[in-house]
């Protein structure tokens, strides 16, 4: 097993890692935004909105992410008569897919904060939005930290699926090289290790933050 092949192709692989990280960050922002909006919509949007969001969640959670990625890259451009870059399709699909999961996570987290907390805020004269922002949200965020961490790790792993729609992230690059090289072992093993190095800090950070912040 000759690991020098990694060194020979380092820039190529490193740019793959960069794309992975970029993709993960962009999708995480998207997913969290969707999740927050979805959770608030389900909790305070009225029955119709709640129902529609429920359908969205059921649909995106009952179909494979891979198919969604393929659909956003191959099918959506046909529908809208525009071309969609692989990276964009990737971010779209990942944001909506994980947004569905985050919606439920945030909804559960908000509900888990005792009603009395929000009521105490209102009793002090805060408007409902301020009471939510300053009392309920901080508490629910802390309780949810481990679960959010888990979901973000899954999101990071899911970026590897975008290789199927030709996003030039780590899996795409590694797979490319591995099928060209005589020895796929060092490259694929190296890719495995890189993913681990990317994922473990997220879990660790979430757990540490949780332990420090919970009262």
């Amino acid at each position: 097993m000759d690991f020098s092949v990694i060194g020979d192709n380092l820039p190529f692989l490193v740019s793959g890692v960069q794309t992975t990280v970029l993709l993960a960050l962009a999708s995480a922002c998207g997913a969290i935004a969707v999740g927050m909006a979805g959770a608030l919509g389900r909790l305070h949007g009225g029955r119709v909105v709640n129902g529609l969001l429920g359908l969205y969640i059921d649909f995106f959670r009952s179909t494979p992410l891979l198919i969604q990625l393929i659909w956003f890259y191959f099918a959506l451009p046909v529908l809208l008569d525009v071309s969609i870059a692989p990276f964009v399709a990737g971010v779209l699909a990942l944001s909506l897919y994980h947004g569905a999961y985050f919606t439920e996570i945030f909804r559960a987290g908000i509900l888990s904060v005792a009603r009395g907390q929000g009521e105490a805020g209102l009793a002090l004269g805060m408007g409902p939005i301020r009471a939510f922002r300053r009392i309920v949200l901080p508490q629910s965020t802390v309780t949810m930290l481990p679960v959010i961490g888990q979901q973000l790790v899954i999101l990071l792993k899911d970026t590897s699926l975008t290789s199927v729609i030709t996003v030039t992230e780590l899996t795409y690059r590694s797979q490319n090289l591995a099928t060209q090289q005589l020895d796929p072992v060092p490259i694929l093993t190296g890719a495995l290790i890189v993913y681990m190095l990317l994922c473990l800090p997220i879990t660790a950070a979430a757990n540490v933050a949780y332990r420090k912040l919970r009262t």
């Binding site: 792993k157 699926l161 899996t171 993913y195």
Partner: peptide, 11 residues
């Protein structure tokens, strides 16, 4: 928990 399924499959 830290390894994507797709890379694992390729491996």
């Amino acid at each position: 928990r830290a390894v994507p399924l797709l890379i694992g499959l390729y491996w």
